[in-house]
Amino acid sequence: MKITLETQPKDNNSKVNGYLFVILMWLVSRLVIIFAMQVVAPFMHTSPVHPYWQPPYPLDYTRGFFPQAGWELFSHWDGKWYRKIAVEGYSYANDGNQHSIAFYPLFPLISRGLMTFGIPFEVAGTVLNNLTFLGALLLLYYWVKERHGTNVARWATAVMAWCPFSLYGTVIYTEGLFLLLTTAALRAFDNRQYVWAAVCGALASATRATGITLLPTFILVAWQEKKPLSAYIAGLCVPLGLISFSLYCAIAFKDPLAFVHIQKTWAQPSWWYILTDAIAVGRDSLIKVVMVFGGGYMLWYFRHQLSKTAVTYGFCSLLLIIFSGALMSVSRYVYGIVSLSWALGLVFSRHNRWGYAILTWFAISLYAYAFNFSIWNWVA
């Protein structure tokens, strides 16, 4: 009893300090994004930002556009598609044009639910993504802390919060929700909470295509670690979100794979182009190559220190991304693999100077990405 009384305040302080650290990382990094988008971009652009574009315009929204402070700046690119789904529902036709059925349903469905309280979509989508991103950071922090302690947990959290592609945890995209669900599913599976792993896994597969990689992850780890039958059932529950979406497509559009077939209307680079452009030091292509293959190397190097669930999920996700053909946003998809933030946190915990230098570069790039996103420049 004496030991319990003496250690309890320390445990409570540690938990409070953990919460405060995560919230601080989330808040300060989000303020950098907000400052770039809501203050700097409107101040610098008082006339149309793309006067050199000629018809046909890349998107109708970009014609004569100039940024004005407000919620609309968070809804560019995919955000406009999610708005269309939440407000009007899905559309699809096999006519060679782009349609909203390409986007998975959970994020716009929850946004629609928030809109029933009188909240505009731009507010609902932004708040949803930011809060779920904060939840993902908290889950990552405590998952890593359980295995490596506070130092590595802080570095891993800082990596996820400050990576330039964490921009998509603030604007109206699915990154926050997807990271929350996949991290919750993986941590639950590690902790033998198979019902929770099954629920979060099914929801993840209704959020983004790469959510389906939780299926082979759970099955392979269950087999390797000789887990009980409930672990295999958790894996088999993962596709339920995707299957539900497919059933909807079959009923509404007579095509259960409409969300797959529509992908051909989005132009995608090839790996040959990405690799040759990276060799020529094309910045975006070089980032893609480093993130994909550097991420794979980190997973292999730390395979005995990360949890087996995290390693297996990381490799399954990378393989799906590599062979999916959807390569335009590879960097953003790789960022959505939580295992890589954990692995990079391990690197920085051992090499602090490199960690601080790279996080500084992350912060500068995050500001630049946010600014460019707000003026309709493609980021990832």
Rank of each mutant, 00 (worst) to 15 (best):
Q305W: 03
L203F: 09
Y232K: 10
K227T: 00
N94E: 15
L179N: 12
F74G: 00
S111I: 05
F189G: 01
S244Q: 07
V195I: 13
I23F: 09
L20E: 00
F259A: 05
E6K: 14
P120K: 10
F103A: 08
S246I: 07
I110L: 13
L257P: 00
W81G: 00
R30K: 15
Q224L: 14
P239Q: 12
V347A: 01
L140Y: 07
A380P: 00
L359I: 08
I23S: 01
L131A: 03
M1S: 13
L306R: 06
I364M: 06
I274G: 01
S166H: 06
S166F: 03
P42H: 11
N94I: 00
G355V: 02
F302S: 02
I375W: 01
G169R: 12
Y273N: 11
M37E: 08
S14W: 00
L180S: 03
W143S: 05
A36S: 15
N94P: 00
L27R: 03
G345D: 04
Y335V: 06
V289I: 13
A188P: 01
D60W: 09
T207G: 07
K80S: 09
R350H: 14
V171W: 03
Q54T: 15
K288I: 07
W223M: 14
A267F: 06
C316F: 07
W271P: 01
V334W: 07
L24Y: 10
P256Q: 11
G345P: 02
M328G: 02
A41G: 06
A326I: 11
G64Q: 11
P67K: 11
V292W: 05
L131V: 13
F189K: 09
L366R: 04
V144Y: 01
T183R: 10
G176V: 11
S307H: 14
D190P: 01
Y369D: 04
D11F: 08
D60S: 14
P228T: 12
G79Q: 12
T116L: 12
P58Y: 09
Q98K: 12
L214A: 04
S307R: 14
V334I: 15
L128D: 02
L138N: 03
I375H: 02
N12R: 14
I262H: 01
S244D: 03
Q268S: 04
L229W: 14
A124Q: 05
W196L: 15
S270H: 11
F323R: 07
W77C: 02
Y90G: 05
I119Q: 02
Q268T: 07
G96E: 10
R350D: 08
F65W: 08
G96I: 10
A231Q: 09
H304N: 12
H99K: 11
K2D: 13
F371L: 07
R63S: 06
A280C: 09
I262S: 03
Q68S: 04
Y194F: 15
G314C: 04
F245Q: 15
F371W: 08
G89H: 09
H261A: 08
E225K: 15
Y142N: 05
S29D: 04
T217H: 08
